[in-house]
Computed example of a mutant assay.
Amino acid sequence: MTAYRQHCPVATAAEVLGQSWTLLIVRELLHGSSRLGEIAQGVPGMTSALLARRLKQLTEVGVVTRLASTGEARFALTPAGRELGPVVEHLGYWGRRWMPPPRSGDLNPRLLLLDICRGIDPARLPRERVALHLRFSEVPPPRWWWLIFSPEGASSTESDPRLPTVARIDCTVSALAGVWLGHRTWREALAERAIRFEGTREAVRNTIGWLGRNRFTEPWPQKQNDKATV
């Protein structure tokens, strides 16, 4: 862990949070992941050894606590860790506003669909379980995915769930990420045939409404001051 050896609270906080992957682990815990495997799903580029080391460091400084469990290890944020929620949120808004769109080589279909499922409002989903079939054209297998919609929420799978399929989408991962992150509109992507739907007009309209957009595409929830005091 880097020691800046400064009195400034920003420096002391950065000693803990500035380590690689640390804030992404906090992000996963904020999303409700608790089991080691669930956390690992949200940080697919992280080795299991490094994940274990970061969780140990966060536990030692009081950001994370290890829960009593049998079998797979489980973790949760402490009150100090939960107070990082607004920090992570503001980083998301800042990144969406000021950083360029993600590079195609940085996109992972599993992680993108996980993010999309987390952002879907269950209240907008159909009353019966249905599936949306997706085919990504430019990635290594698996290229076929399904999103399952139900009143309880949304999830993704590589295996055919054997549910009624409302529509099919053929696209690149970058095209779907572009509309999800608000860098282009559905209308633009459909007009350019970067995204192609198979389904009725109603099904297409419903699907777009169910998927929605990443929350960071919306304006910041509070006005930010032009000047910050640190």
Rank of each mutant, 00 (worst) to 15 (best):
W220G: 09
V16E: 07
I25N: 02
C117D: 07
R82A: 08
E89Q: 13
C117R: 02
D226W: 12
G32W: 06
K227W: 14
V26C: 03
L17N: 03
I169N: 06
V179K: 03
L24M: 10
W94D: 04
G45H: 12
A189P: 03
E38I: 02
G92L: 05
A49Q: 15
H90E: 15
H133G: 12
L112W: 01
R168W: 15
L50G: 07
V16G: 03
L55V: 07
R201N: 11
A76P: 05
G105S: 10
N108S: 07
C8L: 11
L58T: 03
H90F: 13
I120C: 00
R27H: 08
E38V: 01
Q19N: 13
G95W: 15
T22G: 04
P86Q: 11
V179G: 00
C171N: 10
A49M: 11
P102H: 14
W186S: 04
H90Q: 12
A191I: 15
S156R: 12
E192S: 08
A40V: 01
G212K: 07
S20D: 14
P161N: 05
G32I: 01
V173R: 02
A11C: 09
T59L: 10
Q224F: 09
P122L: 00
I116V: 01
S150G: 05
W210R: 01
W145A: 02
L29P: 01
R162E: 11
T165F: 10
V43D: 09
N214A: 08
F197M: 03
Y4M: 15
L134W: 09
P109I: 01
T59Q: 11
L91D: 08
T2F: 12
W94S: 04
G119C: 01
Y93L: 06
L50M: 11
A131Y: 13
W146M: 03
H183T: 13
L17A: 03
A203Y: 00
V166N: 02
R66H: 07
W98P: 06
R201V: 04
W98Q: 13
W21V: 09
P164E: 09
P100T: 06
L77E: 05
L181Y: 11
P142W: 05
L17K: 04
E28I: 04
D226M: 10
V179Q: 03
A68N: 12
E83R: 12
G62C: 01
A40G: 07
W180H: 12
G119L: 00
T157L: 05
A203V: 02
S174E: 08
P219L: 03
E138S: 15
N108R: 13
V130S: 01
P151D: 02
V61M: 05
S156I: 04
L211C: 00
G212N: 08
A73K: 13
K223I: 14
S155Y: 04
W21Y: 14
E158A: 05
A154M: 03
G45E: 10
E218R: 15
R110F: 07
A14L: 10
G45W: 11
W220E: 15
E128T: 15
R205Q: 06
E198A: 12
P140V: 08
P101W: 02
